[in-house]
């Protein structure tokens, strides 16, 4: 078997990969930011709400977690516009999907963190006369954050990798760029080696950054 590796063609089209990586990061950052807001709001609502609200939030989480992301992406991009009168670009559609998707995972992370805050700390907050909002803001959320940071980092990195699914609706992110180079150069091994390395390195840089944040918070334990 004589397949000689030749990366020249890859470097010639490297801008496709680099631009793709930047777009992947952009998709991830925006979706995660929206997902964090969804997750926080729903988690806080969940732990203080009655049965009905809890059931609705739980249903959302269950639904999202049991449907493959790629299907949700198809549903929102091809399905939704036929039902409601909406027109959006593929990247917007994907951000919408990934936000709702990450929100469901983050509700779970935040909810379990909120529930893990020791009751004694909440009692102490009450005892010094903090109002419910103040207890949430100054006691429960900071402690929850410290408890959930490791799980949060893992979720963020996994969501970053999930941006590769945007390639199925032709969003020119990193995986799509790799496919484009593959179709045009047939250097399949080289292009996917380089792309894999780019996902790995980016993932590690993210992980490193998040671990630094974690360490700072853990020092405050």
């Amino acid at each position: 078997m004589g397949y000689a590796l030749n990366f020249n063609l890859i470097w010639r089209h490297f801008d496709k990969l680099w631009g793709g990586l930047l777009l992947s990061l952009e998709l991830a950052v925006i979706s995660i930011a929206i997902g964090v807001v969804i997750g926080l709001v729903l988690a806080v609502w969940y732990v203080s709400a009655g049965r009905v609200v809890r059931a609705v939030i739980a249903a959302y989480v269950e639904f999202i977690r049991n449907v493959p992301l790629i299907l949700l992406v198809y549903l929102v991009f091809y399905g939704l516009p036929t039902v409601v009168d909406l027109a959006y670009s593929a990247p917007t559609s994907f951000v919408l999907t990934l936000s709702v998707y990450s929100g469901a995972y983050l509700v779970e992370v935040f909810r379990s963190g909120l529930e893990a805050v020791p009751r004694g700390q909440l009692d102490a907050g009450k005892a010094i006369g903090l109002t419910p909002w103040q207890r949430l803001l100054h006691v429960r959320l900071p402690t929850m954050l410290r408890i959930t940071l490791p799980a949060l980092s893992n979720t963020f990195i996994s969501l970053f990798k999930d941006t590769s699914i945007a390639s199925v609706i032709s969003v020119p992110e990193l995986t799509f760029g790799a496919q484009w180079i593959n179709f045009n150069t047939f250097r399949i091994v080289e292009v996917y080696l380089v792309t894999t390395a780019m996902y790995l390195v980016t993932g590690y840089i993210m992980l490193f950054g998040l671990r630094l944040v974690e360490r700072r918070f853990r020092a405050a334990r």
Binding site: Q121, D123, A124, P142, T143, R146, A220
Partner: peptide
Amino acid sequence: TGMVFQSFNLFPH
């Protein structure tokens, strides 16, 4: 009313 707890319950952060 001030309260002091058996398990201290300081805010860890």
